[in-house]
């Protein structure tokens, strides 16, 4: 049983959960994720491992409630258990040594970025985090990031904090080719694609952590396939991190839209059921 030890709201719709998971705590590495089913009727969804605590034998995940399953998870409280919690899955994020690294994230991606930024920093790289949020009150984990990185800068869509605009616009406004030698990007697909396009000619090795729809997360369905260069890869076992300059982001976006109408239907069905109760 994986019990929720603590729950903390970070921003509107974004919640941090600390979950008891001794084995995962012992073995996980930055960049890896878990498959979670909040309830026995839920989908299996992938969520990134953010931090861990050896004493409490726990790991933390941060979830943005955007659809049926993430809302089911967000509705659970400390003391509840999640139906299933399996991992750690995927490969660890690549890190380097002695490089100037830029870590870019938007939205809930900032939480997913935290362990990667920390890993780069621990491996003696100079780490700059460029983070994006809709608005000042949507910024998450700022203090934790500042502890993990050398520089942390924020961009907000409405200009209420830091740079007025998105992360990639901030990168282009404040940096030039040569400032960074390695990068990592995680967030919404259009943002990752824009980051890849913006840095294509920079001679920068850029890793993107992809978020395709997953079913099992263990490499047995190929539903999570992505095209990288001319190869088909399984995001759940070969990734989730790939060379951003080789990823076919348009295909990824199309595949992630495949169930949009049914996801809406599931959400509305759930709302109707709640009204009946």
């Amino acid at each position: 049983m994986n019990q929720i030890l603590a729950k903390r709201p970070l921003a509107p719709e974004v919640t941090l959960f600390e979950i008891e998971a001794p084995r995962i705590q012992r073995r996980w590495q930055p960049g890896q994720f878990v498959m979670v089913r909040p309830l026995p009727t839920s989908e299996r969804i992938p969520l990134t491992l953010v931090t861990s605590d050896a004493v409490r034998q726990s790991v933390t995940i941060v979830v943005q409630a955007i659809g049926k399953t993430t809302k089911e998870l967000a509705a659970l409280e400390a003391g509840d258990a999640v139906a299933d919690f399996v991992g750690p899955l995927g490969e660890a994020a690549s890190t380097t040594k002695g490089e100037r690294v830029v870590c870019m994230a938007g939205g809930v991606g900032v939480a997913e970025l935290l362990p990667v930024a920390k890993a780069f920093h621990d491996a003696s790289n100079h780490v700059t985090c460029l983070c994006g949020a809709r608005s000042d009150n949507y910024r998450i984990l700022d203090a934790e990031l500042r502890e993990a990185a050398d520089v942390v800068e924020w961009a907000t869509d409405d200009g209420s904090f830091g740079f007025h605009g998105n992360v990639v616009q901030m990168l282009l406004a404040r940096n030039k080719p040569g400032d960074f030698t390695v990068g990592h990007v995680i967030g919404p697909i259009p943002m990752m694609k824009a980051a890849a396009e913006a840095t294509r000619s920079w001679g920068l090795k850029l890793y993107a952590s992809l978020n395709p729809v997953m079913i099992d997360g263990t490499g047995m369905c190929v539903g999570c396939r992505v095209t990288v260069g001319s190869e088909v890869k399984f995001a759940c076992v070969d990734g989730p991190e790939f060379d951003a300059h080789l990823v076919d982001f348009d295909e990824l976006a199309r595949r992630n839209r495949a169930y949009r109408d049914m996801e809406q239907e599931a959400l509305q069905h759930q709302c109707r059921l709640q009204k009946v109760e």
Binding site: R44, I215, D216, C221, Y259, M262, E265, A266
Partner: peptide
């Protein structure tokens, strides 16, 4: 495998009572 996993393991034939489509 994906088709059958969705339907057998995740019981997509009961959608939307279960969440996997």
């Amino acid at each position: 495998n994906e088709f059958l996993t969705r339907i057998n393991l995740m019981e997509a034939y009961k959608f939307p009572d279960v969440s996997t489509p």
